[in-house]
Design a protein around this nucleic acid. Sequence first.
DNA 1: CATGAATGAGCATTCATTCAT
DNA 2: AATGAATGAATGCTCATTCAT
Lengths: 216, 216, 216, 216
Amino acid sequence: MSTSEETRAGKPRPTVKRRPGRTSRTQLKLFESAMVIMSEKGPTATTVDEIAAKAGVSKGTVYYNFGSKKSMVDGLLRYGVNLVLESIDDAVDEVDDPRERLTRATIAALRFLETQPGFARLAIAEMWRPNGEASSPVLSEQRGVIIDRVTELVEDLSEKYEVSPTPDSASMAVAIFGATFMLAMDREMNHSARTTQDATRAVSKLVDGYILGPVE
Amino acid sequence: MSTSEETRAGKPRPTVKRRPGRTSRTQLKLFESAMVIMSEKGPTATTVDEIAAKAGVSKGTVYYNFGSKKSMVDGLLRYGVNLVLESIDDAVDEVDDPRERLTRATIAALRFLETQPGFARLAIAEMWRPNGEASSPVLSEQRGVIIDRVTELVEDLSEKYEVSPTPDSASMAVAIFGATFMLAMDREMNHSARTTQDATRAVSKLVDGYILGPVE
Amino acid sequence: MSTSEETRAGKPRPTVKRRPGRTSRTQLKLFESAMVIMSEKGPTATTVDEIAAKAGVSKGTVYYNFGSKKSMVDGLLRYGVNLVLESIDDAVDEVDDPRERLTRATIAALRFLETQPGFARLAIAEMWRPNGEASSPVLSEQRGVIIDRVTELVEDLSEKYEVSPTPDSASMAVAIFGATFMLAMDREMNHSARTTQDATRAVSKLVDGYILGPVE
Amino acid sequence: MSTSEETRAGKPRPTVKRRPGRTSRTQLKLFESAMVIMSEKGPTATTVDEIAAKAGVSKGTVYYNFGSKKSMVDGLLRYGVNLVLESIDDAVDEVDDPRERLTRATIAALRFLETQPGFARLAIAEMWRPNGEASSPVLSEQRGVIIDRVTELVEDLSEKYEVSPTPDSASMAVAIFGATFMLAMDREMNHSARTTQDATRAVSKLVDGYILGPVE
DNA sequence: CATGAATGAGCATTCATTCAT
DNA sequence: AATGAATGAATGCTCATTCAT
């Protein structure tokens, strides 16, 4: 699911199982522990010691398995994005109507983010970073992957409803994604302030706005 | 504009000019330097040394003026949020129609975020943080301030168009804010990918969606 | 006496006093402590903690003053080489005869190395290192400086005695330096095994061999 | 060829073949790999991982065969010294004249060191170390072995030419060895700066100097 | 007001070594 | 004989903060 390009010659480290999908028990434990702590404190504030302690292994084991904190975050990011993508695909599966597909997709994403607030926070903390050095290529990559998926859905919608020239599908996708994302984050911060349903409805509204012509 | 809650008793430090709005030249210089660097590297990765160097003063001076790094970030946050609020107020001023007001407000915010990507990054990096310890009260405070402002605008709209049961105004405000925010960030990351106009139009679309009834 | 090229932008570190020759008390203390410990254990085996402890300052102070362990070693190297050079110059001063000059120089070097076995060990440990990465440019530099000085002396000798075609002066310088160096090291290891005078005489012998024609 | 003094009681490990001179294929492979890497990076900077990787075995296998990194270095040292000794013996064999013997011996050593710069570096890095703890007994031992061999040659020379009281043979041996060593190292560092012949001639000169009386 | 030397807790990372299989 | 996952002590380095001048 991820590989460590950092492994210097002569320093053989497993880092990640060659067989994708087959993650050792230890790696999985570390993965989960890292996700939990990093969602709470953010990746920077999370120490490798904490992760190791939570996973019940030694610090050395973390490095034996992941090579570096950075590659662990990368792995976490890829892992999370895959989960989002999967939950979107599941929600959309066997649904034909483009509008219904988009709506279900956003709701699915919303639900996922509410279920996994950790990932959302991790993602945001990593995604908006200095464009410069620290920002791993994995970020732009994953950012693209998810936006592309939403853009596809929007484009199907555009075709069916023949939405006029105006906003390009990608912009629309970004907007929808942003709305969804922010609603999820808001719910998590102001616990119980608003119901999940409120959020769901708000997103639906926005989608509708895309289809309908401007208020005359 | 900033306060130092950290100053322990018995250790009198100016930290902040008593007279609000009256910031010394040194403080201003530090403020600006901090904003520039923190936008680029994020607040955590930014060191006090760097800020001092950029401002052309000694490290000690930073502490003399701000007391701590944390209180500096708080100040920056307040400063930025005020700017956003101001640009929204300017855009909305003398406009009566609620829809027009909301549209203009979002566009103003969009423009601001595109002009000050630094602040946007700073805000997001700080605002969605562990609900726990690290998160300063200033954050939730400012988060609330801005969402409240948008909510007001949405509520005016609801009244006029008598938007039915639908999503509560606050959720809508959050969604709109999220869409705006994400469009701004996306533009900055994928430089030039999409035009400012595309983004503007996309936001307008969403606003329209709120007003109109659901697609029948 | 040395500067740190490593200082990254925005991370202002004194590293070394601008005014050459004027080293702060702390830096001097660290310098001396480092020399003592590194001569005993070798630079690699010496930890920054140890140096700090011996100097009676905190670890942070070491970094405040030298920036890195590596630049400290570089400084030590330069420092030592300068001392050797000085002691050679002192010994040679006001002596005109080339042979006498060379002899005195080697004896001076020998004495220095016996007095400062630490430096000798440090030098050798650092000088013969992988030509690759780890080897700082300072090394080749200093290596050159000292060999050049000896070569000068040998060349003066060559001229006076019109030493025939034979080995080039530089090779001769290297050989003499090597003999001197090894005698010094040997004396230190096998304490008291051989007297300083024995060593001195051995070196003289070698120098004579250079002047005289081959045994017919 | 190597011993593991570290093996704690009750933990029987082969570590070294009982039958001296009989080294298993795996051990040989490790031996050679270690020599190559350690010559390049020095023994301290060389990790067991690297050696294992280069030899194509697992890290555990290194320990299975050698018990510890230290005992591996010891073995390497012995191995190298034996090679030098052998090449000297070969060069001297069937030569009767003491001067010729010494000259040939130094030239042989010079050639060996130029051929095996790795060993030279390894030897020097290890031989001049803290007299204290880290220094394995193997070191002084090997240091003695090689100096003794040269001393023998020098003594034969002394007898024949009746070199007067002056420098004792051992000092002379050390000096000659040092000159040889340094010339070899210098050639390796300043690649191609001086020819092998220059070095050879320089050493010859020094030997001659020993025989001839002082310049009157 | 300002400075800069000093601090020390904290952190990511390395690596020789162990051991169950 | 060999393996490789796991370990943990050790280490170089960072950086927010303090304080005497």
